Amino acid sequence: MLNLIKLPQVFTINQVPKVFHEDGIISGYRHPRSSATDCILSLFQLTNETLNIWTHFLPTWYFLWKLVTVVLMQTAWQDSFTWPLVVYLISCCIYPLASSCAHTFSTMSVRARHICFFFDYGALSFYSLGSAITYSAYVFPDKWVNSFFYQYYIPIAVLNTAISTGLACYSRFPECQSPRFRKIVRVTAFAYPYLFDNIPVFYRVFLCVGQGCTDNDAIILHYNHIALAFLTGFLFATHLPERLAPGSFDYIGHSHQLFHVCSILGTHFQLKAVEQDMVTRRPWLLAHSVPITFSNSLGLALLCVVVNLTIIILYSLPLLSAPVGQKNKKHGKGPKKTSGKLCNRC
């Protein structure tokens, strides 16, 4: 059937505006003003984005199945102890889905590209808060539960969520004029919340000795998650291997695909570790930890959604209000070699 459908044409790096360029990727680019239909059809042809999309779209269904299992089979709504896990699983469904949608529709226009990735960044920061909420509920070492740091851990994580989304969205504007600065800002926007969220895990896994360190079967799972998380960050920051051999990994094997795979595997191990801690430590946590309520679990998730959507709207308004005629004049009707000035134009 696909033989009867005319698939969209792909282009080289010199045929698309600079804002669409990827380091070390020479070919496989889609039309920079694709229709929504073309974007969907491109899922079934090999471009430099195809595997980026599928490596996050397919795992979404796995995490959705896990969420449904918890909500329906474990009667989550009747057991507040599972609410942090519900928040975390919701974030695990949203961030790969937002990423796959962003990669799918980001070639409709420069404006659409920016806004699509605004939502991607908001979803990632929401996932960061979901991780923090589950860590606070299930993962903190025994000796840190109810400590000073424990009391302020979630409020700081909420603040980090807003900062992360704001910085990541801002990083799209100096994208072509200052690519190195843009990269530093974007890496910082995601690395800092991750490092903060995982302070209790790092302490428990690498530093804590003696009584109260909560040494159980989840430790090896936390090790796996940490290793994959750092590999994910390394791939995102370095653009390896395509930087070493530009054009050789345009369709299969470039860093963003590997980044997606490692992030999903890392999330899988993180989920297993959280579930292990939740089951193993439940009696002790119910007796010694702060009770889990709507306000410190699901309520925080709703607050995060509202804050992130507000930030995304504030960044999107200048793009949406840009004159369409000016955009069309700058970009023309088809791919062509363009200057870096187009990066901030919509």
Score class of each variant (00 low, 15 high):
172 R>E: 13
182 R>V: 04
166 G>S: 13
242 E>G: 13
227 A>C: 09
178 S>M: 10
251 Y>Q: 09
258 L>I: 03
227 A>F: 09
255 S>N: 10
218 A>S: 15
169 C>L: 07
204 R>D: 02
211 Q>W: 07
208 C>L: 00
227 A>Q: 04
266 G>H: 00
270 Q>E: 15
268 H>M: 08
201 V>R: 08
262 C>D: 07
261 V>F: 07
224 N>Y: 06
196 F>P: 01
258 L>H: 01
191 A>S: 15
202 F>T: 01
171 S>D: 14
245 A>N: 14
260 H>I: 04
174 P>H: 06
235 L>Y: 11
236 F>D: 00
213 C>H: 01
225 H>W: 04
220 I>Q: 14
197 D>H: 09
177 Q>L: 04
236 F>L: 01
169 C>S: 11
248 S>T: 09
218 A>I: 07
193 P>M: 11
205 V>K: 01
221 L>E: 12
184 I>A: 14
165 T>A: 13
271 L>S: 11
243 R>V: 09
179 P>S: 11
270 Q>L: 11
235 L>C: 06
247 G>L: 10
265 L>S: 02
182 R>Y: 05
268 H>T: 09
172 R>H: 14
209 V>S: 14
195 L>G: 04
200 P>Q: 10
222 H>W: 05
233 G>P: 01
215 D>R: 06
192 Y>L: 13
227 A>Y: 06
237 A>K: 01
249 F>I: 10
185 V>C: 14
213 C>M: 00
240 L>M: 11
199 I>A: 12
247 G>M: 06
246 P>L: 05
259 F>T: 03
216 N>M: 06
262 C>V: 04
267 T>E: 06
253 G>A: 15
266 G>D: 01
174 P>A: 08
266 G>M: 00
166 G>M: 06
203 Y>K: 03
165 T>P: 02
196 F>Q: 07
262 C>T: 09
203 Y>P: 03
195 L>E: 05
252 I>E: 09
192 Y>H: 14
182 R>G: 15
252 I>S: 13
251 Y>F: 08
183 K>L: 12
184 I>E: 14
270 Q>H: 13
205 V>D: 11
224 N>D: 10
225 H>Q: 14
